[in-house]
């Protein structure tokens, strides 16, 4: 007539159960960080008189994309691989060529007086353009801008653009703005 001890629950299989659950979640987890190209659309204007001064031809970098996904840049046919270089040349205009955009002097923090291009990129596509082709163009334009910014960041601060302080990034963004105007050539302006 021995008094029985209170039996302990065997916890040995706890680990198994937990493992099972763990594996389930491991498998079902998708750590998908969605990625993409961020853009800002211009706000809708409702029948406002269009009183923005017309933009000079030389300040517009027109990129046309037709329904066969062919690229026409400034009236010349171009392959997508060449677009980045062409955009960079347009944005910088290192030799102050007549046909490339004008510049204006702007006081920028950290940099002092800077000549900033007045250029605007105008992107127009056809309704039949493939999404991939459109995105590639956007991508190349973006790349041109970020390469310029990266370059400047390295030259001025000796650091990568991403690692700069917010203020410094802002200064660089002022020098190399990302001005892409889409589809409505009438609305070309200083929109990002």
């Amino acid at each position: 007539m021995g008094k029985r001890d209170v039996q302990e629950v065997n916890a040995g299989s706890m680990a198994d159960i937990a493992f099972l659950l763990l594996i389930f979640f491991l498998v079902t987890t998708t750590m998908d960080t969605d990625t993409g190209l961020a853009r800002l659309l211009p706000p809708m204007q409702e029948d406002q008189p269009d009183d923005t001064p017309p933009i000079k031809e030389r300040n517009v970098f027109s990129v046309l994309l037709n329904s066969n996904n062919q690229l026409l840049v400034e009236g010349k046919q171009m392959r997508i691989e060449e677009l980045t270089e062409a955009t960079k040349e347009f944005m910088v205009n290192p030799l102050d060529i007549e046909t490339l955009p004008e510049k204006k002097e702007v006081e920028v923090e950290f940099f002092g007086l800077q000549m900033i291009s007045k250029g605007v990129i105008s992107l127009q596509n056809d309704r039949g353009t493939e999404y991939q082709a459109y995105l590639m163009v956007q991508n190349e334009l973006q790349r041109a801008v970020s390469e310029l910014r990266e370059d400047l960041a390295k030259r001025k601060f000796g650091k990568e653009y991403d690692k700069l302080e917010t203020e410094e990034q802002k200064a660089i963004r002022t020098i190399y703005p990302q001005k892409i105007s889409e589809a409505e050539p009438k609305n070309i302006g200083g929109k990002k």
């Binding site: 969605d34 993409g36 190209l37 961020a38 853009r39 800002l40 659309l41 995105l135 991508n139």
Partner: peptide, 8 residues
């Protein structure tokens, strides 16, 4: 107005 063209 803030959009993002999703891409991989």
């Amino acid at each position: 107005l803030k959009i993002n063209y999703s891409a991989a």
